[in-house]
Design a protein around this nucleic acid. Structure first.
Lengths: 252, 252
DNA sequence: TCAGACTTGTGAACGGCGTAAACAGTAAAC
DNA sequence: GTTTACTGTTTACGCCGTTCACAAGTCTGA
């Protein structure tokens, strides 16, 4: 039971490496359209399936792990998309990140399903679940806070909201980065959640094909949703510029 | 190659019955929380798995079949919920149906996933997919048309919409029941689709647990979404009554 | 240094899955 | 009454997650 020393031992490093390779191989597999299975992952690593149980307790744990990693990687992509806009234009950054999110989801439906439409919800594995949407959640939330800092759009006070909501915003279960958010503006989280619901709804609808292909292809519903939300996020004076940016991002 | 005669023969009837039993048993299985599998269905029917291939071409086809049937049954529930409101109150009916939809989804997450978050989207099986959401889609669309007939809320003209959208609305791929909808008000379909996206988004978010449990339990986001949509659907004069109805339906 | 403990892999096995092919019995059609 | 079509079983294949006993290799401490 030796605790980790200051310096990671050779074995610990090896172990970490194999761990990383498992996730990496799993992601590759998934990206190739193959089924994600312990045997397939092990096989591609030149190992047998039971060996993976030295690293992962079950198939579901592998899935959770991969989902988390995928979310992290995808968030990196969103961050890159946002970074193409000047730093003093959080609105433009949010738009670009949202478009990037949609594009990624449509281009990687399997990965999207894994991360955002997992039936993990059912009880137990709450911690893992909340963590899963942590990175992309963090990112979008931080971006929205920056938008608010610039435009100071209105948001409800905790006292105006239902007690259940106020309670949830006061001590959120999600690992939201509260340090970015002034205590007396917790109501912003409610705006964030509603915006997220709108984005999530349209994208999920598109990914799962519950929409006319022509509408998906044109991005019309996504555009309509964003247009509808822009004023609510204080983007009123620059509507034309932002709409143009959105359109150009969509046709990239 | 004898075509079906006027009267169904004994064999045809038997076949139909087994067919129905397959779907029924599959639904039972699903409702019990068990995995849906050919072997399990066959086993419960006192048959062996390969026998099912006389009725169903593949596992996926069984899933599609069951999904369709589940959607039909669930829609029946929504219809019942709507029917508890007077016939001249389509707004109240729509509210009740929406609440019923949400309640069903939260109470039957597996079934909901099967019908509304199926990765069927991927290419090929388009017909089946569109059919799947046909019954509930039909129902909600018809209800919304009736709301419009009463309140005459504004909707965009086809000419105002993007060509891709206009095209999709002119000859929809979805088996929308166009007979209910006057030709010169096709723009209503666009409103319907956006409303559906909002409903779908919130409910899916809740079902998949990407939301604080306290917020799910309180129904706050669902309520907020409905409140936001009511004016857009012309429900302005009766807001108080409808909001009260919504709240009471939620706590049923 | 050498024995013991711990770590990480293999191999075999269990039960379950979807699916294919060959075959048997039974009902319908001529 | 013979032929045909239908509906089921049996057997088998190759996948899956998972368990367990076992073999090596590696680290640890007297």
């Amino acid at each position: 039971m030796a605790e980790a020393s200051v310096q990671p031992t050779r074995r610990e490093r090896q172990r970490e490496a194999t761990y990383a390779e498992i996730v990496s191989v799993a992601r590759t597999l998934l990206a190739e359209g193959a089924e994600l299975s312990l045997r397939a992952v092990a096989g591609r690593m030149g190992m047998t399936a039971p060996a993976l149980y030295r690293y992962v307790a079950s198939y579901q744990e592998l899935v959770d792990l991969v989902a988390f990693e995928i979310d992290k990687a995808a968030t990196g992509g969103f961050r890159d998309a946002a970074a193409r806009q000047p730093d003093d234009d959080p609105a433009g950054q949010l738009l670009c990140a949202s478009v990037a999110f949609r594009r990624w989801a449509l281009g990687n439906p399997r990965e999207f399903s894994l991360v955002f439409a997992n039936p993990i919800a059912v009880g137990a594995c709450v911690r893992r679940e909340l963590l899963t949407s942590a990175t992309s959640g963090h990112f979008f939330n931080a971006l929205l806070v920056r938008v608010w800092e610039k435009y100071r759009f209105p948001h409800p006070e905790l006292s105006e909201l239902e007690p259940a909501v106020a309670g949830a915003l006061e001590e959120p279960l999600f690992p939201i980065d509260l340090s970015l958010l002034p205590d007396d503006h917790r109501g912003l989280l409610w705006v964030f959640m509603n915006a997220w619901a709108a984005l999530y709804g349209v994208v999920t609808l598109e990914v799962f094909g519950h929409l006319d292909p022509r509408i998906i292809e044109s991005g019309a519903m996504f555009t309509a949703m964003v247009h509808e939300w822009m004023p609510r996020l204080g983007m009123v004076d620059e509507q034309e510029r932002l709409r143009a940016l959105l359109a150009s991002e969509l046709t990239r």
